[in-house]
Design a protein around this nucleic acid. Structure first.
Length: 849
RNA sequence: GCGGGCGUGAUGGAAUGGUAGACAUACCAGACUUAAAAUCUGGAGGCCGUAUGGCCGUGUGGGUUCGAGUCCCACCGCCCGCACCA
């Protein structure tokens, strides 16, 4: 008997699959299509267990769909632009391009041993000129359609690295690499007009039924929505060409309680005043600096600066309200100007008390006349309150009703107009970076900003660049910038900004439908393969990547690159949990923690006998050394074991803890199944003639039924539990070998989405026809799913007191009779009659006394 | 602060409102072995009891129901997201 040797088996079957090209996706007239996609990886150079789990889940779905008669598209690519490549170039020399393509080659060679059912012929990297050239074409079409524009925007500027930093790269007000104090700078940047679609992107969330409710909610909150009033307050005396201050408020009903006006430090009026008012300039500079420090922001003191300018009160023309610059008013929400209503907003109240501004109650509780003192009165908008001198004449109403009526009233009086405001801001895509997709426009002294001609695409990144000094190499490249203006032909300069890498990942799923097309997509292929039927990835992309992709799909429809049906590109989304591991720690002489790799620890001790502290599981990370290398696992146990384990122990949406004993158990199970298969490989003629075995047939039917339903509902861990049970049932069965052999073949089929190599091997040993991967999924015989007899628990007043074995189709009356004749029931009834008997056929009997 | 999710044996977890703890790990016992490993068989929520069995048990407290881990309310704890949004 040969034993289970995954290394031989896995290499063999991977070669067969590759030779037969069985994973090549082809459009089929007969079969329904199925597009399964896992979020493509960043080519860091090394796969980790998280990748293994993510791709295994997708692979289970892809292989299952293949077996159930679908034409499957399961592609893979690389999210290959981005900072790490440039950082590597700066740190260790070399070129980002070389670093990236070397990493891709490494990672591809690490992924192939997993035996994933990927159509590698469609592979691409976002840094391939063929890909980013089409992205540039898409950009030009979007520019043409008015979906892209330029504006001045404040950015985080690192003066040492001479680059713009994302908010996440600013830590305690300092650049994450350089440690330099980050400055706010105003730069002209490119933006996608995603805010134009805010309402649509929000509403369409309702239709995404097969997305996790959590992700929909996160997007909903991110987009935000509030209805309010935009209105002008006339300046008492016009100043710097400002005649009025336009404010936005969601509480127009409290207009009568206005105590002051507040504008953002970056409000145009504030900026105009700043030029002739040094203390204000200092205040603003201070406020802008504070803006970047997250920690300070949370508890930042509300501070203001009185400009000395006033507006006329729209309700009481003889009264004026002072305009303050306030550090808590944000320029990029609403109009950057508000009126403060201290009585009904805690923040405004704190501000008013600090600067001795009036506090005017506009409504009181139904049963309390106490005016506001230290705590602002902010009841729920659905609560009835009594209004004081309300401009619309309202006396008793809820806040919500008052808001709506005030908006109507203000519109009728021409004071302002109702306005729906979204929190979502336009997507700034400019990056002062080399390793990204060049923005295909030219700056011409005569013609201004001119789009590049499509026939000149791709605008390729130059290879001859250096990273030894900070800043964007494109900016200082001697020749690359020089180009004739596409419009007038005069010598001009290229845009040197590149695109945010989120752009690259916002349409790759569409490109996979026709990766070689000479346009961004091929409409026929897109129409056939889109949408992605099942998208799988991490929850960390719940907002940005998924929101941007939804925006891009719409933009691609508008520009003629996707059909209308594909504006929501992902029909179903699944967010998988992480792979975690215990952390092993000791301390050095100075008491600092020292971490140890799992392979160096056994039974809580290092090899030299030192005891380690075990810290509860956390996401695998290099810094904590709680990592298990997939390559090591594959080398010692095989890919099937790794695949089986990452699916087995926890529900896919939750974190799974990697344990050595769990991996061992997975390997043992596969070895056992392999042994079972070799045991029933050869059968005698007596075996062939042995009769059917009903118990085993039942176990088989139940397993088929259960595993099928579990895979369809992402219950991989539950499917695996059923496969363990079926394996035990076969092992213990006294049925003839021929019968058992058929059961083992079914077992191999049901396991094949999870452990394709060993399943293929067993199929071949046991004389299965063709490849198991292409074999049709087994079906459960309905008649076998129902047992002849069932054991019904008997409850008395809801507590289990006995059981009854009855034939499964026995009617209620008979069951009731038998139940009442049961010893336990007779004992408690003592000759009396029960109040009620509940019989749930096939389930339970409950006798109420 | 706002929003959401989750609390089940030693551990990961299972359970269309119907026998709580499937399956797996760790553990214990037995078989095989000179021994160990591997393999196989069996045990196991807690308490009481030799046992048939009984009582308790899904974070805490209430409620709905013939029946609640599951539905509702309040609280406690943990996790996640957002947060000066006018």
């Amino acid at each position: 008997m040969t034993s289970y040797t995954p290394s031989n088996i896995e290499a063999h079957w991977q070669a067969v699959w590759e030779k037969e090209e069985i994973f090549r996706a082809t459009r089929s007239a007969e079969k329904p299509k199925y597009y399964v996609l896992e979020m493509f990886p960043y080519p860091s150079g090394r796969i980790h267990m998280g990748h293994v789990r993510n791709y295994t889940m997708g692979d289970v779905i892809a292989r299952f769909k293949m077996s159930t008669g679908h034409s499957v598209l399961h592609p893979m690519g690389w999210d290959a632009f981005g900072m790490p490549a440039e950082n590597a170039a700066m740190a260790i020399g070399g070129h980002p391009k070389t670093w990236t393509y070397d990493n891709i080659a490494d990672m591809r060679s690490q992924m192939k041993p997993l035996g994933l059912s990927i159509d590698w012929s469609r592979e691409f990297a976002t840094c391939d000129p063929e890909y980013y050239g089409q992205q540039q074409a898409l950009f030009l079409d979007m520019l043409d359609a008015g979906l892209v524009y330029r504006k001045n925007a404040q950015v985080n500027w690192d003066p040492v690295d001479m680059t713009v930093l994302a908010n996440e790269q600013v830590i305690d007000g300092k650049g994450w690499r350089s440690g330099a104090d980050v400055e706010k700078r105003e730069l002209t940047q490119w933006f996608f007009k995603i805010s134009d679609m805010a309402g649509e992107l929000k509403q369409a969330l309702d239709g995404l039924e097969n997305w996790p409710a959590k992700v929909r909610l996160m997007q909903d909150n991110w987009i935000g929505e509030s209805r309010g009033l935009e209105m002008d307050f006339a300046l008492t005396t016009p100043k710097h060409n400002f005649e009025a201050l336009t404010i936005y408020t969601t509480r127009p009903d409290t207009l009568a309680g206005a105590g002051f006006m507040a504008i953002a430090p970056d409000h145009p009026l504030s900026k105009a005043l700043e030029t002739e008012n040094a203390p204000l300039a200092a205040f603003n500079a201070d406020a802008r600096r504070m803006d970047t420090t997250e920690a300070a922001m949370e508890k930042a003191e509300k501070k203001g600066f009185d400009t000395g300018i006033t507006v006329k009160h729209p309700l009481y023309p003889d009264q004026t309200l002072p305009i303050w610059v306030a550090n808590f008013v944000l320029m990029d929400y609403g109009t950057g100007a508000i009126f403060g209503c201290p009585a009904h907003d805690q923040r405004d109240l704190d501000f008013a008390r600090k600067y001795n501004l009036p506090v005017i109650d506009t409504f009181l509780a139904m049963d309390d006349d106490t005016p506001v003192a230290k705590i602002a009165f902010v009841p729920a908008k659905t609560e009835m309150v009594r209004w004081i001198n309300h401009p619309t004449g309202i006396e008793i109403a809820t806040g919500q009703d008052a808001i709506n009526q005030t908006i109507d009233w203000a519109e009728a009086k021409g004071l302002g107009h109702g306005q729906t405001q979204y929190r979502l801001r336009d997507w700034g895509l400019s990056r002062q970076r080399y390793w990204g997709c060049p923005i295909p426009v030219v700056h011409c002294k005569t013609c201004g900003v001119v789009p590049e001609k499509k026939e000149n695409l791709p605008i390729k990144l130059p290879d001859d660049v250096s990273f030894d000094i900070p800043g964007n190499p494109l900016d200082r490249h001697p020749t690359w910038r020089n180009t004739p203006c596409p419009s007038c032909g005069k010598a001009s300069k290229r845009e040197t900004d590149t695109m945010d890498t989120f752009v690259d990942s916002s349409w790759y799923f569409a490109r996979f439908t026709a990766p070689g097309a000479k346009t961004p997509t091929n409409m026929e292929d897109a129409a056939y393969w889109m949408n992605v039927d099942q998208y799988i990835g991490g929850i960390e992309h719940a907002i940005l990547h998924l929101l941007y992709s939804r925006f891009f799909a719409r933009a691609m429809h508008i520009t003629g690159h996707l059909p209308k049906s594909a504006v929501e590109p992902f029909d179903a989304l699944f967010t998988q949990g992480m792979v975690t591991h215990e952390i092993y720690q000791t301390r050095d002489a100075k008491g600092r923690p020292v971490y140890h790799l799992p392979e160096d620890v056994s039974e809580g001790k290092l090899k030299n006998g030192t005891k380690v502290d075990v810290i509860p599981s956390a996401k695998m990370s290099k810094s904590k050394k709680n990592v298990v290398d997939p390559l090591g696992i594959i080398a010692s146990y095989g890919a099937d074991t790794a695949r089986w384990f990452v699916l087995s122990d926890s529900p896919p949406e939750r974190d799974v803890e990697w344990t050595a004993s769990g991996a061992e158990a997975a390997y043992k199970h596969l070895s056992r199944v392999y042994r079972l298969a070799t045991d029933v490989k050869t059968v005698s003629s007596a075996d062939e003639n042995a009769g059917a075995d009903l118990d085993l047939a039942r176990a088989r039917a139940l397993c088929i039924d259960g595993v099928t339903r579990d895979i369809e509902s992402f219950g991989f861990n539950a499917a695996i539990a059923k496969l363990y049970a079926f394996t035990a049932a076969i092992a213990k069965s006294k049925a003839g070998k021929a019968i058992k052999r058929e059961s083992v073949k079914t077992l191999a089929q049901l396991m094949s989405p999870m452990t394709p190599h060993i399943s293929e091997e067993i199929w071949s040993i046991l004389g299965g026809e063709g490849l198991i991967t292409l074999a049709p999924w087994p079906t459960a015989e309905a008649s076998l799913l129902k047992a002849d007899t069932v054991i019904l628990p008997i409850q008395i007043n809801g507590k289990r007191r006995g059981e009854l074995q009855v034939s499964a189709d026995l009617n209620k009356e008979e069951v009731e009779k038998l139940a009442l004749a049961h010893d336990a029931v007779i004992k408690v009834l003592q000759g009396g009659t029960p109040k009620k008997v509940i019989v749930v056929p096939g389930r339970i009997v409950n006798v109420v006394i």
